[in-house]
């Protein structure tokens, strides 16, 4: 049987859409192709997975594993294996961002800034494993794309213009990439506590938004948050130094700055 994503007859792929409220936001799924029963079952698993992540990692819930771990009531070994995984990812993100991404807030362990992107990427990969040809999962404004939406076009993501509500600052295309993530941090950001590691106080930034583009949403989301805190000059230079990462930065003065390779992703 021909791969439906590259069907020369150009037959559109089947489509399954779903919006799920979790983690204080909404996750939008757009799934193309695959065997319908398998894809539907995987969507149910992915959605259940988001709620499990919320229960395990919520810093708002006194009985979550993260809250109990923070109070010393349980050890990492007694938690779900995902807790150790997220702790390691947070440590890596802190190291690579020289502390600009931080999972410590007011003395407490708070992985909120990493968990949503990680959970969104994981949900998308679950659907790919189940045989979907194209997957787009938008976790409250941070998007993981896999495969293609149809035989004749790539996934396309609008980047919201923070200074013109309802408008777009750019359109990013996933053409040629099997995995692409688009993550945006901005002044309206929820859940990310943006702190200057040199002062320990709220970061002073000249930016209103940073959009990071790369293969993995887990990292793109962390890098957008870190660069936002750094400000336009240091943030842009740091983003340029990261492999497989492009970015679009918008300043409060409505100036748009991009990494050198972003142009190949715009369209």
């Amino acid at each position: 049987m021909a791969d439906p994503g590259t069907d020369p007859a150009g037959i559109p792929l089947s489509q399954l859409r779903h919006a799920e409220e979790a983690m204080g936001t909404v996750f939008s799924f757009d799934i193309r192709g695959g065997e319908p029963t398998a894809v539907k079952a995987a969507l149910e698993e992915a959605v259940a997975g988001l709620h499990t992540v919320d229960e395990v990692f919520s810093t708002y819930r006194e009985d979550s594993q993260i809250s109990r771990l923070d109070r010393g009531e349980v050890t990492i070994e007694e938690c779900d294996p995902e807790v150790a995984e997220v702790l390691e990812l947070c440590a890596e993100a802190e190291r690579l961002s020289e502390g600009w991404f931080s999972a410590t807030y007011e003395g407490r362990f708070d992985p909120t800034g990493l968990v949503k992107g990680w959970a969104t990427e994981r949900a998308a990969l679950r659907l790919v494993e189940a045989g979907a040809v194209g997957v787009s999962v938008n976790g409250g404004g941070d998007v993981q794309l896999c495969g293609v939406p149809g035989p004749d076009r790539p996934w396309r993501v609008g980047v919201a213009d923070p200074l013109r509500p309802g408008g777009l600052a750019a359109v990013v295309t996933a053409a040629g990439a099997d995995r692409l993530a688009v993550a945006t941090s901005g002044t309206a950001e929820r859940g990310a506590h943006i702190v200057d590691p040199r002062t320990g106080k709220s970061a002073v930034t000249d930016l209103v938004s940073v959009t990071a583009v790369g293969p993995h949403l887990t990292w793109a989301d962390c890098w957008a948050t870190a660069a936002f805190a750094m400000g336009s000059r240091e943030g842009l230079a740091w983003l340029e130094s990261l492999p497989d990462t492009e970015a679009l930065l918008i300043t409060a003065g409505d100036e748009v700055r991009c990494t050198g390779g972003l142009a190949s992703r715009l369209g």
Binding site: R156, G158, A160, G166, L168
Partner: peptide, 30 residues
């Protein structure tokens, strides 16, 4: 003008600063 531009841009999803469940209802993604 911008919403129309978004429509003609033929997009599948919108990336932006995280919206709340309430904010989602007013979003282009919605």
């Amino acid at each position: 003008q911008n919403a129309v531009a978004a429509g003609s841009a033929d997009i599948d999803a919108v990336s932006g600063a995280t919206y709340t469940s309430g904010g989602y209802k007013e979003s282009l993604q919605s």
